[in-house]
Write a protein that binds this DNA or RNA. Structure first.
Lengths: 117, 117
DNA sequence: CAAACCTTGACACGATCGTGGTAGGGTTTG
DNA sequence: CAAACCCTACCACGATCGTGTCAAGGTTTG
């Protein structure tokens, strides 16, 4: 076993089958496929679906928001442009600090070392 | 001089007056106000408006997307939750690297927490 | 093989986004 | 003071988001 079909996944995650397809189309959680095209949700995907639901509810954000964050995550140009715009003379002084978030991955080495340790 | 009214700002930025109010309501570019409530756009705001327009067109994103990025910029909890979700077993290996983007001030953060403890 | 699944594609519908307008009422300025 | 400008508060309208449902057809399984 080890993989659930869409209706089973829906039952255990709280999403509707319809929404699972939508979430996939949004590029957020893509299950494997059986040889005949059936969606097969593994433990990782199920967990991701549950935490996604929690994330959306907890901060009252939408799938499209998370999708945008994901897009920034793998489009450096977009990420950079947005970061630069946000940094550009943020009115409130705290913002100057906060906009620090999108600061790029200069500490990749540290992250790798930490992961090993 | 040094500050334009909404119609003048509209002329020099390409936005409509209506949209300038909307952009303000979205929390993205907030002009100063005269004593009687008139919006007063300074050079900084005008620049920000121009680059914002460029940003939206160049990547085909919406005001709401930038607003969401701004929200992440000053809500550490949200930022952290989103980052954690994106990091959580990203399927493609590149993503593990890319999700590194939100790799921010965790040192600063931890130091603060440590200082409190 | 028939019931119970799965797939994609479409129609639908309320909610929000992006945009324009208009109305009613203050402010600035020639 | 009258024209020209600004304000807020609405109404409208197409586009997209989030969601359900249904149709037509393939797959799995008792």
């Amino acid at each position: 076993m080890e993989a659930l079909t869409i209706n089973q996944a829906a039952s255990t995650t709280g999403w509707s089958p319809r929404m699972l397809r939508y979430v996939e189309q949004a590029g957020l959680v893509a299950p494997a496929r059986s040889s005949s095209g059936y969606r097969l949700y593994g433990a990782a995907q199920l967990q991701r679906l549950r935490t996604l639901k929690e994330l959306l509810g907890q901060f009252d954000i939408g799938l499209s928001d998370v999708a945008f964050a994901a897009r920034m995550a793998d489009e450096p140009e977009l990420r950079g442009a947005v970061r630069r715009w946000l940094e550009s003379q943020a009115s409130r002084p705290e913002d100057v600090e906060a906009a620090d978030w999108l600061r790029f991955e200069q500490d990749k080495h540290q992250r790798l070392l930490a992961a090993v340790a």
